[in-house]
Design a binder for these strands. Structure first.
Lengths: 352, 352
DNA sequence: CTGAAAGCGCTTACAG
DNA sequence: CTGAAAGCGCTTACAG
């Protein structure tokens, strides 16, 4: 007969040292039974459950996921590959995905690719998650390309969230930057502006900002507005082209400037005031994102990207896919944002 | 004799399906040998290594960390418990820790506590990391208290980074908010301000902002400056007390306002301009953080918190602790930031 | 330098 | 409803 009294884990009672066997002994049942009540879904008599739960609590048992994952050959762990935590848009996305995941009963672990090192190094994060044999992969970084994921597509469901996805094997949930740009452009055109500067970062710098900018320019033109497209390829230098805008405005050649991000728009403001340009009397400006803390106080006219919707939808899809791989035909969904009025956009006082 | 030719994993050649045995067969060595070259540190003949590496590459083998972790009873996985990804300071910290970890050869996985749900739920993230049997734990959230970590302290090294730590069993690397506040206060006093408003959020709202604010006020007073301490306990409402500041300034009762964060300072600016207060002519303002994108363009006088230093030091300590548990006596280190001059701070034009 | 074998802590048919 | 036992994919003494 087994000894009574609380059996100690080999680590002298430290919770991480207690194994399922210890729990089983304390509860006087088999290891299999402990496992069953832990799984929660199988039939165990009420009184046995009670015994086991008491033992579980008493010992502070923390299941070893390495062992359970290995034995079960599956896991409810979802890996999130996150692009750049410094970017507020990704920070918010991260937070929202965590909330949704917890609601959906998924265990989220996040990994960030180290971009500062060699090309090989960039994939280390992916391999870490794959090595953990996560049950699902959410990708929100352009650093990992569809090509890198291809070999694993039939072993693990992948949904890319917040980045444009075109691969037929990867479910995509992202922002509709074309519509976003169009929405903003419509507002500016409707306000009566007939000549507008649009800042457009190169594609390689930021896919999202590039698409937004191009969409703004295109829709402005479609409405008969004259567009001064200001391309920029200066990485990390959000104030590139600010002098050009100041000059155009001072010369009365534009009445509005559209920026592909709030950060850029806000960064421009000191330039304007230094040049004596009043906003919006002399120049209207618009941003894009709507997620910066305090941006409402600044009162910038912008568009709020639907981070919550994208996170929620992406996580739901992930949960469905993990439950049943065939449950969803792969689609590429896009969500448009909502215009946020602000003090910085008004009708032009004079015609250029 | 084993069959020659590329053996397929059971998943029909999908990389995640190939096991170490498959690699061993292809390379015509034992599983133990494959494991040895993977570990990298033991003696394997050059030609054997060559064979194994070829097989590894050919099959696209991704080691199963569940299995290796279980067998090795240890792991070079480091778990990071991150407070709030939406907060730029934590986003930057996350990014820096990742960089340092990769440099130190540590595998970082991050978990975010879900704060939106019940108290039990908050600890889910911790249990996830513990369940994974991480080799080390970096904690940068106040949601998890020292008390929650206590039971695990002798099983896994814990360093708390970016949050004040007082527990004698937990290594702490954080910001020296007292000195930060003092540095800013000295600048303001030195500029000649004799009556200053200081916004102080309650402790429960933000430990860091509370300490900064109190330190500012204390050091101002120590220098004989009159302090209007404006307490605030409005969560998430960074503009609380802005009207009070505008009024005090308009009445000529203060010449400067100190905010415990850049976000708060920036949020105040529209209030000032609406009220016709010029900055810094009518009112100087200072923030704190120095990490907001675009804050340099705004030109706010602030203090840059040493995120990189804290991340680097915290990660180094973690690496040392994982290498040898006794290598470091537990300490609580603090790093002060550096003043960042800006357009918003000048000497007062008139004396109140 | 290399291999056979035990064992890590679980889950899950398979019996009963 | 419950237990004995096989097995998940690795690592690591132990021999040689």
């Amino acid at each position: 007969m087994t000894e009574l009294g609380p059996p100690k884990g080999r680590n002298g009672g430290s919770p991480l040292g207690v194994r399922m066997d210890d729990v089983a002994q304390l509860a006087q049942v088999s290891r299999a039974t402990v496992s069953r009540v832990l799984m929660g879904n199988v039939s165990v008599s009420a009184k046995t459950q009670e015994k086991v739960n008491r033992a579980l609590r008493e010992l502070g048992y923390v299941p070893n996921m390495m062992a359970s994952g290995l034995a079960a050959r599956s896991s409810d762990l979802v890996g999130l590959l996150l692009r750049d935590p410094r970017n507020p848009a990704y920070g918010l996305l991260h937070s929202e995905i965590q909330n949704e995941a917890s609601r959906a009963g998924l265990q989220l672990i996040t990994v960030v690719p180290t971009v500062t090192r060699g090309a090989e190094e960039e994939l280390a994060g992916l391999r870490r998650l794959l090595g953990l044999r996560v049950g699902g992969l959410m990708v929100s970084t352009g650093v990992i390309k569809a090509h890198d994921l291809e070999p694993f597509l039939d072993s693990v469901p992948v949904v890319s969230v917040g980045r444009v996805e075109e691969h037929p094997g990867i479910y995509g949930v992202s922002y509709d930057e074309d519509t976003n740009g169009a929405i903003l452009a419509d507002r500016v055109a409707t306000a009566g502006h007939r000549s507008v500067a649009v800042v457009v970062p190169v594609f390689s710098l930021s896919t999202a900002e590039n698409r937004r900018g191009l969409a703004m320019a295109a829709h402005l033109r479609a409405r008969g507005v004259e567009v001064h497209q200001l391309d920029t390829d200066l990485f990390g230098d959000s104030v590139d082209r600010c002098e050009d805008i100041v000059r155009l405005a001072s010369e009365g050649r534009i009445t509005a400037a559209m920026f592909p991000s709030d950060t850029r728009a806000i960064s421009f403001m000191p330039y304007a005031s230094e040049a004596g340009l009043r906003i919006p009397e002399d120049l209207s400006i618009t941003g894009c994102d709507g997620i910066l803390m305090g941006s409402e106080q600044i009162g910038i006219a912008t568009l709020r990207i639907p981070v919550h919707e994208v996170a929620a939808r992406g996580t739901t899809v992930m949960a469905d896919l993990m439950r049943d791989r065939g449950s969803a035909t792969i689609r590429h969904e896009r969500f448009a944002g909502v215009f946020v009025p602000g003090r910085t956009l008004a009708s032009p006082a004079r015609v250029p």
